[in-house]
Structures are given as structure tokens and as C-alpha cells.
Simulated scan of single mutants.
Amino acid sequence: MTIIRRISALVAAVALCATAAAQEGKLKIATVDMQQVFKEYHRTNEAQKEINVERLRIQKDNNDRLATIRELDTQLQTMRKQLEDPTIAQSKKESLSIEWGVKQQEGTALDRERREYLQRRTETLNQKMVQRMKGILEEIRKLVEEKAKAEDYDYVFDKSGLSTSQVPFFLYTKDATDITAVLLKELNKDAPAESAPSPEETPAGE
């Protein structure tokens, strides 16, 4: 995700400082796969399920509006055929023409309203999703900080971080402890059984 990549960029900057500090003495270093922790944290899965439900609700509302517009379009097509029918009296055509114009304007207004609704609801949902994911990442970051202080680590690096060329920042780290599994165990200790993440529900990268 984009948010994780931003964190990784900060990690890379810290790594440069750590390299210099390592020359002065032995450092206690740990690594963590932030992407794995984020994806496998039960609260991430729960948030994604809620977002998916809301997305389906928006799609249903949009489909209902489309059905109304299509029904109106069918009526317009029927009326147009009547207007083109030479057997229909002129007075009848004049009233049909007025009605056709009113319905056409109604259809245009309904479609404009549908598009605005879809855009508004989608933007709101996207903002909600970003805020939820930021909150989860902050929760994970705090746990990493607490773990680092408790275990007296000098540095904790995100091994899932990539450079601008999409190459991992850390190809090799000597004597580093991977705390990914420990963090996941702590984060998911109270997870309900139904919150186990499944591949199709794992948030896609941005």
C-alpha cells in the first residue's frame, strides 16, 4: 500500500544513520515485515469486510437508479416510435411531443444525479478506508515501538520496504531478529475465529 511505502521511505533514511552508528559498536537490530503484519492483522480484515459491504451497498443503489433510468429510456423509445407513426393524429403527436420532452429532461436529470451520487459516495468511502488503514498502521507502529523498548533494540527495520527501483532496502542484515511472528501473535491474540484473513479479502496494494 502507498501508506506502507511512505513508512518504508522513512525506514530507509533511518537505516543510513544506523549504518554509520554500527561502526562505533554492536547494535541490537530487529526486522519486521510490515506488509505481512498489516495484511494478517485481524482488524485489517474486519475493516476490509466493512468497506466491501458498504461498496456493495453503493453499487446496489447505483444499479437501482440505473434501472429507473433505463425504464424511462424504454418509454422514450416507445413514444418516439409513436411520434414517427403517420397514422397517429397531429393533435396526439403534439401532446406526445411535449410529454417526450418532459421525460427526456427527467432522464437527463436522474442520470446526472446518479453520477454525482456515485462519485460522492465513492470518494467518501475511499476517505473512510484511508483513515481506517492509517489508524491500523499507527496501532502496529506503536506496538513495534513498545516491543523495541521492551527488548532493548537499537533499531527495528521494515524488511518489506522497497526502494524507488522496487528493490528491497535490506538484502541482508547480520544478527537481526525477525519479530514479525511475535507481533502478529500479540495483535491477533483476541481475534474472533471469523476474522481470519482470506486471500480475496486482503487489501490490494494501492
Rank of each mutant, 00 (worst) to 15 (best):
Q82T: 02
E84L: 12
E145G: 08
N62V: 08
K134S: 12
D154S: 13
S163N: 05
Q166K: 00
S95I: 01
N63K: 07
K92I: 12
Q127E: 11
T78S: 10
K81N: 10
Y117M: 11
T68G: 00
K103M: 11
D85N: 15
N126G: 09
D154F: 03
T74R: 04
L76W: 12
R70M: 05
A109T: 03
T124G: 02
R115M: 14
L110T: 00
D64K: 10
K103R: 11
F169V: 00
V144A: 09
E99Q: 08
K128N: 15
E99G: 03
K92S: 09
I136W: 01
S91V: 10
E116N: 12
E123G: 00
Y155Q: 02
D175V: 06
R114M: 08
L72A: 04
T74L: 02
P86G: 13
K149S: 14
Q90M: 15
D64G: 00
K147I: 14
K149H: 13
T108V: 11
R115V: 15
L96Q: 04
E106P: 00
R120Y: 13
L110R: 02
R114T: 05
V102R: 07
V144G: 00
L72R: 06
I98V: 02
Q104P: 01
R114C: 06
L83F: 08
L137S: 07
D85R: 07
V102I: 09
V167A: 10
Y172T: 01
E151P: 01
L76Y: 07
T108E: 09
E146D: 13
L171G: 15
E116S: 12
L76P: 03
S165A: 14
T122I: 04
T78L: 10
T108S: 10
R112M: 10
S163L: 06
Q119Y: 14
L96S: 01
K147V: 13
S95R: 07
L83E: 02
L83K: 00
A150P: 02
S95F: 04
F157A: 01
R132A: 14
K128A: 14
V130G: 04
Q75I: 05
T108F: 14
L96I: 07
N126F: 09
K93Y: 09
L125K: 01
K128G: 07
D61H: 02
L118V: 12
E84T: 06
V144R: 03
Q82I: 03
R115A: 14
L118R: 07
R80H: 08
F170T: 02
S97L: 13
E116K: 06
K103H: 12
L72I: 04
R121Q: 04
R121N: 02
K174D: 15
K142M: 11
I88M: 05
Q127W: 03
L125F: 03
F170P: 00
Q105F: 07
R115F: 12
Q127Y: 05
N126H: 10
F157Q: 00
I136D: 01
V156S: 06
K149Y: 07
I136K: 02
V156G: 01
T173E: 05
R141F: 11
E106V: 05
E123Q: 15
E123N: 03
S97N: 11
